[in-house]
Amino acid sequence: MLVDAPYYIPGSLAEPAPSNPQDPQASGPAYGQRVAALALRGGSLAVFIGVLVFFSVTAPFFLTIGNVGNVLGQSAIAGVLAIGLTIVVIGGGSNVVTGGIDLSLAANMGLSAAVYATLVQAGYGDPVAVIAALGTGLAIGAVNAAAITLAGIVPLLATLAVMNVVAGLELVLTNNTVVPASTELLLALSASGPFGIPVLAYVLLGFTLLVAAVVQFTPLGLRLYAVGEFPEAARAAGLPVKSFVAGSFLASGLCGGFAGILSVSFLSGSTTGAGDMLLPVVVTALLGSVFSRRLVPTITGTLLSTLFVGFLINGFQLLNISSTLVSGVQGLLILLVVSATTLLRRQENV
């Protein structure tokens, strides 16, 4: 139903209403909001840098190339998963309950890793194992996509159910044991590259670059944002909304498979407990949006947020502080960030 404007009013154009758009009062909130948004973004960057400075002063080893490389390498798995989740959040919108979320990502990584390691154990080579692991991830993504776009289950529940199935399959496959695996590819991935920085660090940076190029710099990415943020507008622009949503889950599934391969290399095999990564990855991806100018989820923002968490863990370790504080810091940060954005929005609506 279109909302009808007041009755026919001859000559009313001569008389702009008091709340006209040029009134500074009317544009005030938007302006104030921008300033506050800037402060929020600047503030989080300042916190990030502040943390780095704090650690580098208190733990001299912190800012060495070797250590930074280590942090990057150790963050690779979480980073790839968080990037996968970010794609889903962009395409599904930031309302986590009805919008984009993929709770099956961590379990996906676990199963993909198990598939890889099991195949290697069974004597298959890297090519078969890689294809199988990525295929596993993609298949899980396809199930999610079908459940959400065809059956119409909300993403939170669909991926929750899929997570259960996938985690179960991993247990069935591995009997809840460690499956060691060692291949040339795995060795190469876990080795050190140029400057003594782990290869995984380069992988993370390369992967981020690739995904960021697609998501932030191509028409495809722009359309994905439109689909997630304002599906009606996307539909009006002639975009196939459902295909985009399905595609985002396929992409995130693929990320899960890729992270699986990385984890086999990092841990020299497939191990149990992949599910524990889920909530930290969710928090990381959601935090990432404060590093973007428009306060939306971005791939680079997610990378920064991943590294932030990585540096926190690393710094605490160097200072011999229990790294358990990390989750508290993450929790407080997300509450702080979300409170700030919520309060901003409320101000805007007044």
Binding site: L2, Y225, F230, E232, A233, A234, L295
Partner: peptide, 11 residues
């Protein structure tokens, strides 16, 4: 040109 403006706010 509809009354409801179909534009993505963060674009």
């Amino acid at each position: 040109i509809h009354q409801d403006r179909l534009l993505v706010p963060t674009f």
